[in-house]
């Protein structure tokens, strides 16, 4: 069972104000924004990426996408699922990994922190969504992105460490 949230986010950069004396406490400001120390015991995060295409056109469910299908079919209706790409990558902390998607967009992922609550991932599905996710080991995150080839491009991420 899942809880459902629906919302609209808005991009934009807030205007910069109150700057006259910032230089005076610049060290404090930068120190507060410094990256958190990484968990020393984790050498890297494995990240499984599966890029799929779903469509309401009758078709098969790609066996390689069976796990995604199991998770997704209860929530989203579609009639076919094809796996277009699979990747297994190793993420170092604060290392940006990028891959090209079938729609000529890119997927960028960065792990910025890892702890008891999981790994903190910055994910940018170009043209669709940018997000920060705190993901536990083995947790599957599925993105339904832009329309693609009379269906939709679906990207799943599964970090392990």
């Amino acid at each position: 069972m899942m809880s459902h949230k629906r919302f609209e986010t808005r991009s934009g950069v807030t205007g910069v104000r109150g700057l006259g004396l910032l230089a005076g406490f610049l060290p404090v400001f930068l120190a507060g924004a410094a990256p958190a120390p990484a968990a020393a015991q984790v050498q890297g995060i494995g990240l499984g990426v599966v890029v799929s295409h779903i469509s309401d056109q009758p078709g098969r469910i790609d066996p390689r996408g069976q796990r995604i299908h199991q998770k997704l079919s209860a929530q989203i209706r579609y009639q076919s699922l094809s796996v277009l790409q699979t990747h297994q990558m190793k993420l170092g902390l604060n290392e940006v990994r990028s891959l090209s998607l079938p729609n000529s967009r890119s997927l960028r992922v960065r792990a910025t922190d890892i702890g008891e609550r999981g790994v903190l991932l910055n994910v940018d599905v170009e043209g669709s969504v940018q997000t920060d996710l705190r993901v536990k080991n083995g947790h599957l995150v599925v993105f339904g992105t832009e329309p693609y080839d009379n269906g939709k491009l679906v990207i799943s991420l599964e970090p392990t460490w």
Partner: peptide
Amino acid sequence: TTVIWLLDGGSAE
């Protein structure tokens, strides 16, 4: 599993 679904009002969803 967490699903993040961009709504485009299109098909297949």
